[in-house]
Simulated scan of single mutants.
Amino acid sequence: MSNEIPYLGSKISLISKAEIRYEGVLYSIDANESTVALAKVRSFGTEDRHTDHPVQPRDEIFEYIIFRGTDIKDLHVCDTNKLTPQDPAIVQVDI
């Protein structure tokens, strides 16, 4: 597949421009809408990052969150172990 998204299914750490850190599984990237979707997302709040509006971490796990690309300050891959099998027969996996 030539349009496969690299790191799809990998654990991602993302920091928003509001200095809030999120961790989740890379679910999709939409280049047309400039969005990144993470599944099984946890918010770690602002932690020790300087901000005028500190945010506490949350215990709940969000099914998925779609982030606007322009509001992402930092994004990196934490774990490249993909959660989905590499089988060309699979059309879609709901995480």
Rank of each mutant, 00 (worst) to 15 (best):
A39F: 04
Y7V: 03
I72Q: 00
G9A: 05
G45P: 04
V36F: 03
T84N: 12
I5V: 06
D71N: 14
P88F: 04
I72G: 03
L75Y: 02
I90P: 01
N32H: 10
E23A: 02
T70C: 03
Y7A: 02
E4Q: 08
H50L: 14
I90Y: 00
E47M: 13
I29A: 02
T35M: 13
S10H: 07
I15K: 00
K40Q: 15
A18E: 12
I29P: 01
E19T: 12
R58V: 00
K73Q: 15
V25F: 06
T35R: 00
V36E: 01
D52I: 02
D30R: 04
I12H: 01
F67S: 03
V93F: 07
A31K: 15
H50K: 14
P57M: 07
I29D: 00
D79C: 03
E4W: 05
A89M: 12
V91F: 03
A39R: 05
I65G: 04
S10G: 05
A37G: 06
S13I: 09
S16R: 00
S2H: 12
Y22W: 09
Y7S: 06
N32W: 06
H53T: 15
D71Y: 06
E60N: 15
K82H: 14
Q56D: 07
D94F: 14
G24C: 05
E33D: 08
A31C: 03
D87T: 11
T35K: 00
I66L: 05
C78W: 05
A39K: 03
Q92W: 09
K11H: 12
Q92G: 05
D59A: 13
I65L: 11
S28K: 06
T51R: 00
P54K: 07
K11Y: 08
I5N: 01
I5L: 05
N81Q: 10
V41R: 02
E63I: 08
I20L: 00
D94P: 05
T84M: 13
